[in-house]
Design a protein around this nucleic acid. Sequence first.
RNA 1: AGCCUCAUAGUGUAAUGGUAGCACCCCGGAUUUUGAUUCCGUUAGUCUAGGUUCGAAUCCUAGUGAGGCUACCA
Length: 559
Amino acid sequence: MSETTDKKDFIREIIDGDLASGKHETVITRFPPEPNGYLHIGHAKAICLNFGLAQEHARVKAKCHLRFDDTNPSKEETEYVESIKEDVKWLGFDWGENLYFASDYFEYFYDCAVELIKQGLAYVEDDSLEEVRAKRGNVNTPGRRSECAERSVEENLDLFARMRAGEFKNGEKVLRAKIDMAAPNMNMRDPVLYRIMHAHHHNTGDAWCIYPMYDFAHPLEDAKEHITHSLCTLEFEDHRPLYDWFIEHCPVPSTPRQIEFSRLNINYTVMSKRKLLQLVQEGHVAGWDDPRMPTISGMRRRGYPPEALRSFVVGTGITKFKGTTDVAVLEHEVRDYLNKEAPRRMAVLDPVKVVLENWDEQPMDTASVPNHPQNPDMGERQIPISSEVYIERDDFMEDPPKKFFRLGPERYVRLRGGHIIQCTGYDKDADGQVSLIKAKILPDTVGQDAPEGVKCKAAIHWVDAATSVDAEVRLYDRLFNCEDPDGAEGGFLSALNPDSLATVQAKVEPALADCEAGFSCQFERTGYFVADSKDHAPGKPVFNRTVALRDSWGKQSGR
RNA sequence: AGCCUCAUAGUGUAAUGGUAGCACCCCGGAUUUUGAUUCCGUUAGUCUAGGUUCGAAUCCUAGUGAGGCUACCA
């Protein structure tokens, strides 16, 4: 699937309209994460949208800012700032000079608040959180305004200055906008602008003890940066009137417009930062970048290429419809990219030794194996081979059914890139498990079709017993085995897949050995892909073994 | 209950008054030194009822269904 599209979603329509009408001469967007967790695939949608818009409008010098919305010091950490930058870069986007922190505007926010007070549009509230809540009413009943709303401008100015000066304790006072306590939109019932929080801020240290609320700060941040189109998710729809109210009543250098779109939902996946944090803190996963996590860093470690993530989120489109995308679409994009771009390697996850009894009849030092079956430009590699090789346990059956095409007593199969072999016998251990397979090579079958009368329909993975490398391979599956973990009866933790991680002692070809701590992901049809654990770079070798997971010969399954 | 938003195959998304198309999933066939890939094919859709119009997924009205809002989170 293409990463670019001619299709115009409603946001692009609006932007084109604004450009055409002359309302704006350029487009400036922003990606404004709060640094309180790692980025996940849902953020990738916002990143691709905002940065993508800037790229598409390069002709009018469009830009996309990276802005950390760090107005709540109790939840934010520098570690998250760094990981977010890394993930945005890895996804393939560049904010250039345009890196900002909401906390750098604290003085400006303060000035705006003072200005609102002077206009009689904001007041200092003495009521406790509980009282404020009780007086706000609910969706059916209008709220009651506190007596504090009657304070004079001078008194409010004085009180607000003393809030900043640290004269009050947390929760003792709060600054509110004076709007409409009977508004059907609850956000307009005298929303809180500033709260007192004696806390250390990752950027401003101890300079402040009052911090602005999102609703107040965000439109001002956008205006300050001359953002033309402020894109956010659907849950902020009801906040837009408030957004516009602040733009109207504060001294702003520009008038940004908020536009909402639907956030990304994927089945078998939890996307809330709170839940992801819980998975990390309670040790259900190894960390934010555990390959099973839907985080950008987790997917990176799992071998998902950034190209696939981008084409996936672009493909799901921008709408206001709240749907759930099938995780199979994501997996398809990953497979699609890896299939085209990744050089192939061989590995055996559950090895059984095969002795080639007549090796002397046509011995080879190396087998020549193409690095990519459809792309000769990737060349071939020479893999050492000798009279003893390992093959996958699943590739041999003592009593194979009719449509099993691989090895069995008297049967033929090709060693990929090598000879066709025929099984001549096998040993079993005390447990009845096959411990050794004996076979003979058919001379003159390397690179040749099967001779007359030889039924050989499959080519299997193998590694040389003498030169293969032992490797611990971790196999990853979906973290949740329930389509809607958020809606699981026993909570999302009860939907955790106990088999999401398995470790096997595999034997891999030497060329795969540099993929240290290799891991794989299991796709329903495609079997395993193994990539490097640190990063997926273009051209990184991939172990792509295909087995019949949904077999045509019967019920037994590949895994 | 009040306000806001949304509704197109199983899923996601196009079609801005003119033949409802694409992708994923599913199923079938051909090719194949990965049971993969590739190629071809099948199934399947405009929430309901009215209205405007030569013509409606699209515009209007009502209804139904789904989601959001009652943090000193973002």
